[in-house]
């Protein structure tokens, strides 16, 4: 109910602002909706959205799985931490744009280069979060598992993983929002389709309704995925915690 109210408020402010500054700079909601419908019925909207989502899914999965594994290793093994730390600091401070441009130069304007570049941007934060989570693991529970001779996999699944789950959820959430932003830049610079590409075209033509139509649809999809996928996972990871009053 509150969400609906804030959405209505958003629309109202937009509409009023559009009336004040004029349709060329800020088109009114119906004008944008019209473009949305036109793009949707031609199929272009879904094509571009699909391409972007596929890139997000691939890059996100790649970065999360690789980052979690490396982070876990660095949290557990001191030597790995020592070796990996300088690389991690380098990656953390490398601007996204540099990674994308270099990837396109070295690997060509290819799909693989785009996905790798997006994943590399997300990778270091996933590593840092999971390393933190691994360092915070409760040693006394590890001892319990070893005294009761729990097999490795069972101990990992029931003792370690539940402790890491909140960290994985946090990393997924922050990582997803990072990937949403970077994927558009990567598409703008070197892909012939996707929401980022369309926004680039709209920018060149100064076609504000089209720009807004694509951005807002994209934002809506992000919102839906966040509420339907990420938040329930986060809640599930924390289910056993005694509920606060």
């Amino acid at each position: 109910m509150l969400r609906l109210l804030s959405f209505v408020l958003f629309l109202a402010i937009w509409w009023i602002a559009a009336l004040l500054v004029g349709g060329a700079k800020l088109p009114s909601p119906p004008a944008v909706l019209q473009v949305m419908i036109a793009e949707a019925s031609s199929g272009a909207l879904f094509l571009h959205l699909g391409a972007t989502l596929a890139r997000v899914a691939l890059a996100f999965t790649l970065a999360m799985s690789l980052g979690s594994a490396i982070g876990y290793l660095m949290g557990r093994v001191k030597l790995a931490d020592r070796l990996g730390d300088p690389w991690l600091i380098l990656l953390l401070n490398l601007p996204a744009l540099v990674v994308i441009v270099l990837a396109y130069i070295w690997a060509g304007l290819t799909e693989a280069a785009a996905i790798a570049a997006i994943a590399i941007n997300k990778l270091p934060t996933a590593i840092v979060t999971l390393r933190e989570g691994t360092r915070a693991l409760d040693r006394s529970l590890d001892e319990m598992a070893s005294v009761f001779a729990m097999p490795r996999w069972r101990a990992f699944r029931h003792v370690v993983l539940p402790q890491l789950a909140p960290y994985i959820a946090a990393s997924a959430r922050s990582g997803l929002s990072l990937v949403w932003k970077i994927v558009l830049v990567a598409e703008l610079l070197g892909r012939p389709n996707g929401v980022g590409f369309e926004i680039g075209v709209a920018f060149q033509l100064f076609d504000t309704p089209r720009l807004l139509a694509y951005s807002l649809t994209f934002a809506a999809v992000v919102l839906v995925i966040e509420t339907l996928l990420v938040q329930p996972f986060e809640a599930r990871a924390n289910r056993w915690r005694p509920r606060a009053a």
Partner: peptide, 15 residues
């Protein structure tokens, strides 16, 4: 086979 009761219970809070 070892059965141990630690000084603190050491149960898995999420199970």
């Amino acid at each position: 086979r070892i059965g141990m009761v630690f000084q603190e219970p050491r149960l898995l809070p999420w199970r």
